[in-house]
């Protein structure tokens, strides 16, 4: 009977199986993600239409040459809107994840460094916030901050920040207890040097791993918020808003809903696959086993 892995389980275990191909396929999701990022970046240049331009004579037109993904209920080109929405999604999700990492790690590590009392206070509050449903927290923050790319990014970033603080604490406590840190302390190494040379790199690895987990969730949260009408301003095309706007007309124009749903699913799938590979690469226990 094969030994079961002791430390957690990964998506790649499921995908590769024990007899995985010798050629590492892990570049494929990363390459595809690069293509998505490029499309999002170049969207306005390669979009066949202005995403806001309405052709009321050609509403809910099915896909055809010239309008490859058809038009929506106001005669706007779905492909052009999809590209514009990709831009917002990529921008907001990566910005929010970076913000969550920065705020969560800074808050958690500062509190830990400041001593036991500040740490227990800060993490007490963080545990409280984590007990609230994250969708509700995001919604409340969204209402508090208003609409627009900046506020959405901040709302999603802040609602995910506590998880990074907790991950930073776990990594910190694990490293503090590690035998080699004990040895460094015993040999008289300055605490700042220990922090920089031994603890920081390992905490950073844990944080990056967590960022890979959070990024696809940030993508979904952005879409859910804009689906609920609370995302960036109503005129800006986003995937969530395209879905919300298309649903009432879905029987006449299924493509207007299908296109953003597929785009969203493919993006989260790619991010989950790529993130899993990043996790595997960042996990020192698994390095070189594959």
């Amino acid at each position: 009977m094969p030994e079961a892995p002791l430390s957690g389980w990964r998506l790649a275990d499921s995908l590769d199986g024990p007899a995985s191909a010798p050629v590492s396929p892990w570049r494929v999701p990363l390459l595809l993600l690069g293509a998505v990022a490029l499309l999002a970046l170049l969207g306005p240049l390669i979009a066949p239409q202005d995403p806001l331009w309405q052709d009321l004579a050609a509403r809910n037109v099915s896909p055809r040459p010239g309008a490859w993904l058809g038009t929506d209920n106001l005669g706007r080109d779905v492909l052009s809107r999809l590209l514009a929405g990709a831009r917002i999604t990529v921008l907001v999700a990566s910005g929010a994840t970076a913000l969550a990492l920065a705020v969560g790690a800074a808050l958690g590590l500062t509190a830990l460094a400041a001593g036991a009392l500040p740490a227990s206070l800060v993490f007490g509050v963080i545990d409280l916030i984590r007990a609230l449903p994250s969708v509700l927290l995001g919604l409340a923050l969204m209402v508090a901050l208003g609409t627009g790319v900046g506020p959405v990014t901040i709302a999603i970033g802040l609602s995910f920040a506590p998880t990074f603080a907790v991950v930073a604490r776990q990594a910190w406590l694990r490293e503090r207890a590690a035998a080699y840190v004990e040895a460094a302390v015993a040999s008289g190494t300055h605490p700042a040097v220990i922090l920089r040379r031994h603890i920081a790199p390992n905490v950073a690895g844990a944080l990056i791993t967590q960022a890979a987990i959070i990024l696809p969730r940030a993508v979904t949260t952005e879409s859910v918020l804009s689906f609920l009408g609370l995302g960036v301003s109503p005129e800006t095309p986003t995937w969530g808003r395209m879905i919300a706007a298309g649903l009432p007309f879905v029987e006449r124009a299924p493509h207007a809903v299908l296109a953003p749903v597929i785009a969203l699913s493919v993006l989260t799938l790619l991010l989950a696959l790529a993130g899993d590979r990043i996790r595997a690469a960042a996990d020192p226990l698994r390095m070189g086993t594959r």
Binding site: L15, G17, R217, V224, V257, V261, L264, S265, A272, L273
Partner: peptide
């Protein structure tokens, strides 16, 4: 087991719910 695991990690319930509406309610 592996299919279920990949499904729940990679596909958000929001997307699956929407796809379900499209397939089972609309089509």
């Amino acid at each position: 087991v592996q299919v279920l695991n990949v499904w729940s990690i990679a596909l958000p319930t929001f997307c699956v719910g929407l796809a379900g509406i499209l397939v089972f309610s609309i089509w």
